[in-house]
Design a protein around this nucleic acid. Sequence first.
DNA 1: GGTCGCCTCAAAGGATGGCTTATAACTGAG
DNA 2: CTCAGTTATAAGCCATCCTTTGAGGCGACC
Lengths: 333, 333
Amino acid sequence: MIEARHLRVLRAVARTGSFSAAARELGCTQPAVSQQMKALEKSVATPLVARSGKGMQLTEAGQVLLKHANGILSGLSAAEEEVAAITGLRAGRVRLVSFPTASSTLVPPAVARLRGARPGVRVSLVEAEPPESLAMLRGGECEVALAFRYPDSHGGAAVPAPHATAREARAEATLEAAASQAANDWSDLVVRPLLDDPLIGLLPTGHPLAARDESRPVDLAELAGEQWIAGCPQCRGHLVELCAAAGFEPRIDFATDDYPAVVGLVAAGLGVAVLPGLALEAVRHSGVAAVPVRAASGAPAVRRVVALTLPDLAEVPAVALMLDQLAGAAADR
Amino acid sequence: MIEARHLRVLRAVARTGSFSAAARELGCTQPAVSQQMKALEKSVATPLVARSGKGMQLTEAGQVLLKHANGILSGLSAAEEEVAAITGLRAGRVRLVSFPTASSTLVPPAVARLRGARPGVRVSLVEAEPPESLAMLRGGECEVALAFRYPDSHGGAAVPAPHATAREARAEATLEAAASQAANDWSDLVVRPLLDDPLIGLLPTGHPLAARDESRPVDLAELAGEQWIAGCPQCRGHLVELCAAAGFEPRIDFATDDYPAVVGLVAAGLGVAVLPGLALEAVRHSGVAAVPVRAASGAPAVRRVVALTLPDLAEVPAVALMLDQLAGAAADR
DNA sequence: GGTCGCCTCAAAGGATGGCTTATAACTGAG
DNA sequence: CTCAGTTATAAGCCATCCTTTGAGGCGACC
């Protein structure tokens, strides 16, 4: 088997016309060159250099090999160069999958900053909700997935506790999570927390609680008797959990993942709603009152927005930079 | 530094989609593949494969490297193929340098046989006299040189005695040979004897010795009183030596390396000549009598025709085959 | 839920190969 | 003949590579 190292030596020998000079050019000793040439001649089973006293010439086989060596070695250095361009952020690609509210709020400034700092890095964006986006990440269809989860819910721990082995972590997750939520197991992923997105209660402007100071949180229990308008299926599930913790079951008459529709329904006085803060940012919410919501525990209800990637991909500079820019954009709000 | 071995592993991994399958394809164990991939990732300083549970995908850097790997490895195998074609005598080239009388007698059948047996081997022929042809051989301008020497002359031993070191051989040669004949030192070459070319005396048909049985040799001393027509400078020098050994100095009135001219001069009765048998084969020699010549020692006078090559080149199949065919052609006469 | 088969990784041992230093030999020039 | 430059060889050191062995993770199947 011919090795690239052999061809480098052959080229140096051919260029300099001497083993010693080739050794100096290659930064090694002359016997090393001599041995490499001998190894190469053995691997092709034919002499490559012919010596006669002073001078040395390549045999025909040597010339043929040298001709190929030039092309092969230049191809090799081109490959190194191209890879170096990717690692050096002069080139590369990051495919991002985001859920809708993040792609209209967090993603644009992060992508803009990345493109400004590293114009060579191409960023593409696809929208998908968390269960599907994780499948895309694990399936190699993207490098970074934005997702969210509700802390202390059955979706899994936001910050997984350290475990001696993944087996233990898995066993623990099995214990505390339902089988149907195995898709929410992020133990095999790199989780980069971005921000805790506060849940905002939407009330019709005429609602009694809307008259209070808007900065003063509303306890979920205060809305026990209301009619509810729910968002996406996952948000709806979480809402039910939160309300159960607060001691009641919400009466949900409308459910839609179209946030402007939710706002419109609330404004029309058809019920109250709880939406993520990010969702509210992208929607005009005139005609409704927005107030922070406190969970049963007394802490503000939030959903945790995170960026996810595969452990291997976390080492890729462009991916790490994307994560950094997303974290920066999240910190800026 | 990326090595070809790394790329072979990468390609196998990409093709099979699994380290184990790649190991089976490569004929080694799976940890070997794992280590090679790790080494490659270290050498390019970026991850190349991303694993997520079941599947594995190449990272962008991995895809870039794979794209180049295909070209590089195919170039590598093309190089091996082409070199193998040369060593396997399906291709290759032998540049032959010959002195004129051999190129018209020995060379044509030898080349014809070689081309018949190995049509892929290209043979080229250039004519040059021995001192120059040896310089061409040592200078890499040809692979095989045909030359001749006169045994027991000062040109050097026809079959060099074995020496412990080339230094000793050189010292010996220095002792017994004049400095001007250093160019005839063949101790650094591979010498393949082809044939002993008998020297033929040419006499005018009216010459008294021409009337004898043509198969009966003529002693050189019998021609002591003749006028002489000499051939090429080297032949002329040797003639003088032979005559000196026989006890006389030839009277040389004409000297030309044009053998037909020599024959013509002899036929015209302007003198006698001694020509190599090979030279006579290519020249019409009507009008002259050709008789074998015996030297002062009583043995037939001959010149030894040999094929020379460099030790390294003697290992090249095409060169070795050329030498064999030349020896065969010489043996056939 | 448990077992089985497949895949991957990690660690340790042995073997191979590369590089280096040191030495000897050869060539050409002065 | 001596000197400078080059190449080949041998011995020792070290890195690398490959293997074996064991463990853990994952999906499939019972």
